[in-house]
Design a protein around this nucleic acid. Structure first.
Lengths: 104, 104
DNA sequence: TAAACAATTAAATAATTGTTTAATTGTTAT
DNA sequence: ATAACAATTAAACAATTATTTAATTGTTTA
């Protein structure tokens, strides 16, 4: 497992992404939203991390995971090829948002 | 298998989508681009069809498959939730293109 | 330093998904 | 009707992915 698309294919992983989109969380905190055993959750987080969909930040005992925004561009690129659209406006939108974040 | 995201997760299926985006094709025609046995290809086409990513049109002995554009909206919706963006401009873009096609 | 905690990795098992071979359905042409 | 073709479905098998239990790593606190 390593592909972006395979990482997105799992229902629970997409839910994790939605949760991490709201705020960064530790695995323990995430666990409250699912039925997972800790290793199962850990495995999903590793898959999301390998796909660069989330980033990890270690702080003492805890690890904080948060959404890594860069990857959506790659999927948008696929839609662009698929439909032949030029989705530049969307790409610029996302890229601008990223640039803003960096300067916060 | 039935989910949109699982249908998208397979590399070959995404390639099929790119090919069908260019023009409608029969399975025999598609087969030229892959190593699949006919049943394997048929299985992928069924998965894409169940996910409403492609449509089937029977014509005599042949079946023509083509890209069904409606589904991309559902994935865009997910990105919208995930990033909290309002992607209305993109949605309108796609919806307009659809409306145009209908009147061709 | 020892105990407790957060989270992971490893190894085994369970579940899902993909591919093959064989048999079937429906269509055209002779 | 029957032969040939396009594509599918069914059933068995192969491969991949997910989940569990057990063991491990690193961090804090008593």
């Amino acid at each position: 497992m390593e592909s972006l698309w395979k990482a997105m294919a799992d229902d629970s992983r997409r839910e994790i992404l939605l949760l991490l989109g709201k705020k960064k969380m530790t695995p323990s905190e995430l666990a409250g939203h699912f039925q997972f055993t800790p290793p199962a959750l850990s495995s999903h987080l590793r898959i999301l991390r390998n796909a660069d969909l989330i980033t990890e930040q270690r702080l003492g005992k805890n690890r904080y995971y948060s959404l890594d925004e860069r990857k959506s561009l790659e999927m948008i690129d696929f839609f662009e090829k698929m439909w032949g659209y030029k989705m530049n406006s969307l790409k610029e939108f996302i890229e601008n948002k990223e640039r803003k974040k960096k300067h916060e």
